[in-house]
Structure formats: C-alpha cells, structure tokens
Simulated scan of single mutants.
Amino acid sequence: MESKNLMYIYGVNPVLEALKVPQALKEIYIAKKRVSKLKELIELAEKNLISVKIVDEAFIERISQGVHQGVVAKIKPKKTITLDEALNIPLHKNEPAFFLIIDLIEDPQNFGTISRVADAAGVHAIIYQQRRSAGLVPSAWKASAGALWHVNLVEINNIKYAIRALKEHNIKIYGAEAKAEKLYWKSDFTQPMALVVGSEGKGIRQTVLSLCDEVLKIPMKGKINSLNVSVAVGLFAFEVLKQRETL
C-alpha cells in the first residue's frame, strides 16, 4: 500500500534495515500480540525518536500484502539517482564499473531478491525502466530483506538509452541469455561492465539484446532449461567478484 509521498513496508528485516536510515521512517505499527517478541525493534525505534503505535493485528493485515510478522512501517519512498550520478560511483570508489540492467522484470519478488544479490555483490547501481518494471513496491521491499535501502537505483524512461550512454563511457555490455553460445565464466569481468538480464518468461527483448557487446549463458545439465532470474544474477555477480579479487 502506498501514496504519492508515503509507502508502507512490512516484515521485521525490512523495518530493521529502514531503522538504519531513520530520517526515512515516519511511524511504526506493532501488533499487540507481537510486542514481547519485537522489544528490540521497539527500543531501537524509540532510540531514533520514531513513533511506535501498538495496534490490532487486523489493522496491519489491511495495510500489508504478505507475511508481516506483526510489524508495518510508514516510510518516505527511497530516492533514485540519475545515470550520471551512477557513473560517478565507481570513479569515487576507484573500482571498475559494475552495473546491473534489468529489462522489464515485473515480479516484485524477483526485483527485491535481485536487489539483495546486488547489495551483497557490490553492484554500483541497478538500472531499470520506469514502465513495465516492478519497481519500489512493498512486496519488493519485503523480498529484498531491506537491501533496497542500500543499493543505488536508477529509474529511467528507456533502458536502451542507458545502454548507449554506458557504452559511450567505455562500459562493456553483457547480456545473459539461455540460447547464447559462450559460457559466462569465460568472459573478462575485470573491465568496466554492465550485465543485462530479462524477465523469466520472455528474456531480454531483442531490441535490447542487439545492443549487448557480448551474450553469455549459464550451462544447464538438467531437464529444466532456465534458472530463476535472481539466481542467474547471483551466479554472474559472484563470478565478477571472483575475477576482480586480485585487482
């Protein structure tokens, strides 16, 4: 549930992570029956001068859209950054660029889980298209276990524009595609790069795939010929970390 300027997130981990950015939190609601189990969260909120309200669980049920664990928080939506700001991040960190471009992933669970992987793997920014993408909805926050607070997000009108802009900055574009010929671990990920992944149902759109400098696949030995997109992102992302370990 959300409004133009406020959003509700739910679940213990997302709310605990939000408390690390206390200026973003407006109020926290705790179900009466869960107070004893959530004392640590309540104490942390009070320490940060965040209002805590004890309410009936039915109130939380109306606001949340999934497993809430007895806690809901009203937050200001996370601010996205511009593509130019994203390009400055690896420069400031003195690291080769590592961006993730997600092509029309509409499942909030996947969007959230991908964000969790991106945070763990040190991706400099996630770039996604405003239309036909899951974006920052409450269920994505829940699936990310709070990681969405810590990743940089670039919301853009057209990811093809973003890809062209990255290429102008000598960032190589890799596409993850099941029908590709080259295995992903045989590529050089030590150079500045961006990885493009598509939705499970349709994969990367052909118009986007045509902009990739190299298309790579994950080898599959089983009878199921594809992985969940967040699992695929994890395999690619940690291969990047492995190759850059000695830089």
Rank of each mutant, 00 (worst) to 15 (best):
S3E: 13
L6H: 15
I9C: 05
E17H: 13
A18E: 06
Q23G: 12
Q23E: 15
L25N: 00
K26H: 12
K26S: 14
I28N: 03
R34I: 02
V35T: 14
L41M: 11
E46P: 01
L49A: 09
I50E: 06
I50W: 08
S51H: 12
S51F: 11
V52T: 12
V55R: 07
D56G: 05
E57V: 07
I60N: 08
I63G: 07
G70Y: 09
V72C: 13
T80S: 15
D84F: 00
I89F: 07
H92S: 13
N94M: 12
N94D: 12
E95M: 13
F98Q: 03
F99C: 09
I101V: 15
I102A: 01
L104T: 12
P108A: 09
F111S: 10
T113C: 08
R116V: 12
V117E: 00
A118Q: 01
A118Y: 00
A121Q: 03
H124A: 07
I126D: 03
Q130H: 13
R131L: 08
R131G: 02
A134S: 13
A140N: 10
W141R: 02
K142N: 10
S144W: 07
S144E: 02
A147P: 10
N157W: 06
N158V: 08
K160R: 15
I173K: 09
I173E: 09
Y174K: 00
G175H: 05
K182Q: 12
Y184F: 15
F189D: 01
Q191S: 14
A194C: 11
S199V: 02
G201Q: 10
G203H: 10
I204V: 15
R205V: 07
T207H: 09
L211Y: 05
L211C: 05
K223I: 14
N225W: 00
S226D: 08
V229Y: 01
V231D: 02
G234M: 03
F236H: 01
E239C: 04
V240S: 05
K242N: 14
Q243M: 02
R244D: 09
E245V: 04
E245P: 00
L247S: 09
